[in-house]
Design a protein around this nucleic acid. Structure first.
Length: 553
RNA sequence: GUGCCCGUAGCUCAAUGGAUAGAGCAUCAGCCUUCUAAGCUGAGGGUUACUGGUUCGAGUCCAGUCGGGCGCACCA
């Protein structure tokens, strides 16, 4: 709707002889009595025009030329806001658009012909997925969905490393548990992986190999490989349970592999940064001179052991995203990686890449509450924070929705009891119930009055509807495409949850206040169209969030 | 010490720099012989942690203070 208002206001300013470089903001007043939309342009422009904002607004109004039957009323209010009231007819005609566009309703084309890469999860295969990773996974998946609604061709990527030090420790951990299983006395270092799954992997190896590997060896390759396969399979299975998928798995190791000019991607980064004068060597290591950029310390790129630190392949990895030609590059990760990306961005800037294309979505941590008790997350202790356990407990829909129903910048308090509740306290049920209720209503409509709005094209009947409740519901449906755009711009699926919750609420009120099947025939049909349109928007929204839309409950 | 996030109703959380700061839960009071009551309506509940600043206007932006979280490795 912003694009509906903006040109009209722009033209009005011109023809009223008002010149301003202030942006034309279109907002939705919190209180409907201030209109469906409003603009503060008169307030912003008042100073440079040296005129009173209210008087300025009055001057503009006669020049606002809208298409017929779209705007019912325009008025100046408050300090100088111009408030717009949509015509009821226009609102209901917008609802017809939902019925025509169906699954396509709400989609846009700002990403048409463009590509985006969204990277998320990216956990190394050292253990099962934790709840914290789950939040990032769902967030990333929803963000990818949001990009797709705008026409972007999206690649969902998982970046992992099966070659580093952590994987070495994993291999050693499994080997030790295996040796223990073979009856050898071992000492298990506290630096190694404590989780019970290590023992399970060792047991699995023992059942296949017996004691044939019980001679201790420095080479843990076999154990590492076994562990990696089993763990990766389990990670993918967990993600699948949440309908989180990836198109591409990028192995960090390829960045260590020489290309046709027998040089590695990592080495190229060093060479290029050195040309720009940002590489120095001391203490036997190779450093990125971030002190030249105002940071306190330089950052190690190649350790004195000769191995790259994680920063170097990270930079090289991001270069591949540019080289692969993505127009939009989105990284989703947890707050524990907060210090990681500024260095990467600095390096990319120095190397001449357009870092404006990179967007970073950082999600804060998750705590779970059981019986009102907050549990502290710890990877080392027990498995209380395993994502699989949570899904077992509350189901995939609740897991997904709870992860994104708070702003990603907020710490998430996951109330496990609430997520299992089957009442309106539980937002999952509240939303799904609205959908199921509409499905039931439509079934009843077939039976009772023999009318199926989905197979009728008498959409114009909607124009009879004019009660405040009906108009509010209609307005919410009209607002849906803007909601998606806002949600995408902020990389914040939580906005969608809020929107859908208020949509469900408006529908429940409508259902309560307006008799549908018992109304006179044309009104009944109109209300069924409105219900069908609501169901459509709920479905479309659920699809973005990855929540199922039950036909009955 | 330092970088990032947070501090809003008893609790969990909203509020593109806008108008009287909103929902849900909990509390209290109503609504089913009638399309799913897994629902709806209403009431009470606030010095937006604190102090300054920026401006027509600040929960929002800036500075500082106080509290909480996450990082701050030649680990990823």
């Amino acid at each position: 709707m912003h694009e509906f208002f903006r040109p009209v206001i722009h033209n009005a300013l011109c023809s009223a002889g008002i010149t301003t470089d202030k942006p034309i903001n279109i907002e939705q007043p919190a209180d409907k009595k201030f209109g469906d939309f409003s603009t503060n342009i008169a307030l912003l422009a008042a100073k440079e025009c040296r005129r009173n904002p209210r008087e300025l607004a009055q001057t503009v109004i006669p020049h606002l030329i809208f298409p017929p039957d779209t705007i019912a009323r325009i008025e100046v209010a408050g300090a100088g806001f111009i408030n717009f009231y949509l015509a009821p007819l226009f609102i209901m005609q917008s609802v017809e658009k939902v019925l025509i566009d169906k699954d396509e309703y709400g989609k846009g084309n700002i990403g048409q012909g463009k590509t985006a890469i969204v990277e998320y999860v990216s956990a190394n295969p050292t253990g099962p997925l934790t709840i914290g990773r789950g939040r990032g996974g769902v967030l990333g998946d929803c963000i990818a969905n949001l990009f797709e609604t705008q026409g972007y061709e999206v690649t969902r990527e998982y970046y992992f490393n099966d070659a580093g030090r952590q994987m070495q420790i994993l291999g050693e951990s499994v080997q030790l548990r295996y040796l223990e299983r073979c009856g050898k006395a071992i000492e298990f270092p506290s630096t190694h992986y404590q989780g019970g799954y290590i023992g399970e992997i060792a047991e699995n190896i023992y059942s296949k190999q017996g004691s044939s590997l019980s001679e201790y060896s420095d080479d843990v390759q076999f154990f590492k490989k076994e562990a990696e396969e089993i763990i990766f399979a389990s990670i993918r299975k967990t993600l699948e349970r949440l309908s989180i998928r990836h198109d591409s798995f990028f192995n960090e190791h390829t960045l260590y592999t020489p290309d046709e000019t027998s040089i590695t991607a990592n080495q190229r980064v060093i060479d290029e940064l050195r040309k720009k004068g940002f590489i120095t060597e001391y203490d036997g290591a190779t450093w990125f001179q971030t002190t030249m950029l105002g940071q306190e310390k330089d950052k190690v790129l190649i350790k004195s052991s000769g191995e790259p630190s994680y920063r170097l392949p990270d930079i090289a990895y991001h270069i591949t995203k540019f080289e692969r030609g993505f127009d939009m590059i989105v990284n989703v990760f947890g707050a524990d990686h907060i210090d990681e990306y500024p260095d990467v961005l600095e390096a990319l800037n120095i190397l001449g890449y357009d870092t404006q294309r990179i967007k970073v979505a950082i999600n804060q941590f998750v705590t779970t509450t059981v019986d009102g008790q907050t549990l502290k997350m710890s990877t080392r202790k027990g498995n209380a924070d395993l994502l699989d356990d949570l899904i077992d407990d509350v189901g995939a829909d609740a897991t997904r929705l709870f992860f994104i129903m708070r702003s990603k910048d907020s710490h998430l308090n996951f109330d496990v009891e609430l997520a299992k509740k089957q009442s309106k306290d539980n937002p999952v049920f509240y939303l799904q119930y609205a959908h199921a209720r509409i499905c039931s209503l439509l079934r009843m409509a077939q039976q009772e009055i023999g009318f199926d709005p989905a197979s009728s094209s008498d959409h114009h009947l909607l124009q009879q509807l004019s009660s405040p409740t009906e108009l509010q519901l209609g307005f919410a449906l009209l607002d849906y495409p803007d909601m998606i755009k806002t949600s995408l711009r902020l990389l914040e699926p939580q906005k969608m949850v809020e929107y859908l919750h208020s949509l469900a609420e408006l529908f429940h009120r409508f259902y309560q206040e307006c008799p549908i099947l018992k109304a006179e025939p044309d009104i009944a049909r109109a209300r069924l169209f409105l219900s069908l349109a609501t169901r459509q928007v709920l479905r479309n929204g659920f699809r973005i969030l990855g929540v199922s839309a039950p036909e009955s409950m």
